[in-house]
């Protein structure tokens, strides 16, 4: 079926910077890669609500509380845009949700770290959303049309997420000595996991090359990670916080920051399910799903009743 001719046409089409749409012919591996990537991305948005929801009831002011609520609601929305994009490739929504709930699907490891102080809300918006934006801005130009369009919507909303986080951590960094310490502590804990969000180094990322060829990805993990470091160092300095990396230094020649070695053992360990909160996140997600059962039942009963009245 997948003869050379089809593959060649497909590659030429992609190389010409044309978007692939749901009904177009595509290699099976392209479809599979996208379903995996888009659904993992969707799961990350959904699980990403949990660490922040932890602080909604304890936000320090009404202003911070409404902001956090709006942000968490956006994450739910992002999950839905992405599931919707995955479905255009023939994926079944219910199956994707089940894969998340039974632990067979992956989501971004960053959400397996705990949010222990209010400063973590600042650090997540600033660093975690900041790192996600690097990746997502690249994906607005991905070769699959529905994914690219979902990314455009998401990127518009992420910019609010990052700015509110930076504002929140700035408030702490410029506050009392205790507040400043709290801000620095959050940066210390979130810095390295944020760098890990870009994935393994290029020489340890076997699937990247094919994804680049198909223009699903347009920049390598290491390129994106470097861009993130280059952008973020100045943002930390501006509010008097210190990046927790003794090896961090500006390289005049390359025009980039050099940074220390990432702890890849920790990275792979968290992916394998042994991070601080892997079990807790899955448990919370399953409980939320189960506790929502009556809502889904009520919605069905209501739809049925209306239908029978109309008949």
């Amino acid at each position: 079926m997948e003869d050379e001719k089809h593959l060649e046409n497909f590659q030429n089409y992609v190389d010409a910077e044309k978007k692939i749409e749901p009904k177009d012919w595509m290699p099976e591996a392209y479809r599979k890669t996208l379903i995996r990537q888009i659904s993992q991305h969707a799961h990350s948005e959904v699980v990403g609500m949990l660490p922040e929801a932890n602080w909604i009831t304890r936000a320090p002011s009404l202003r911070r509380k409404v902001i956090l609520l709006a942000k968490v609601q956006d994450e739910a929305g992002h999950g839905l845009y992405l599931y919707s994009a995955a479905e255009t490739l023939g994926a079944d929504r219910q199956m994707l949700v089940e894969q998340l709930l039974d632990g067979t699907a992956k989501y971004s490891s960053i959400f397996n770290y705990p949010t222990v102080t209010w400063a973590d809300m600042g650090a997540i918006g600033w660093l975690v959303d900041g790192a996600a934006i690097m990746n997502q801005v690249m994906l607005t130009r991905t070769s699959y049309g529905p994914y690219a369009r979902a990314m455009v919507r998401i990127c518009k909303e992420e910019s609010f997420h990052q700015r509110q986080g930076y504002e929140a951590i700035t408030a702490l960094a410029q506050g009392s000595p205790e507040q400043k310490e709290m801000a620095q502590d959050a940066l210390n804990r979130w810095w390295w996991p944020s760098l890990m969000m870009f994935g393994p180094t290029d020489d340890n990322s076997p699937n990247s090359q094919q994804s680049m060829k198909w223009k699903i990805k347009r920049k390598s993990n290491d390129e994106l990670r470097q861009e993130f470091v280059d952008r973020t160092v100045g943002q930390a300095e501006a509010i008097g916080l210190t990046i927790p990396d003794p090896d961090l230094k500006w390289n005049e020649e390359t025009g980039h920051y050099e940074f220390g070695e990432i702890n890849w053992d920790e990275f792979y360990n968290v992916i394998k399910g042994n991070g601080p909160c892997n079990r807790e996140r899955l448990k919370a997600r399953n409980e939320a799903h189960d506790n929502g059962e009556w809502v889904r039942e009520a919605a069905n009963a209501y739809a049925k009743k209306k239908k029978s009245k109309a008949a």
Binding site: L80, T88, A299, N300, Y302, A303, K306
Partner: peptide
């Protein structure tokens, strides 16, 4: 703009 799942048109 995209799609979503719902039990009926109103919802």
């Amino acid at each position: 703009v995209g799609s979503l799942h719902a039990p009926d048109a109103e919802m």
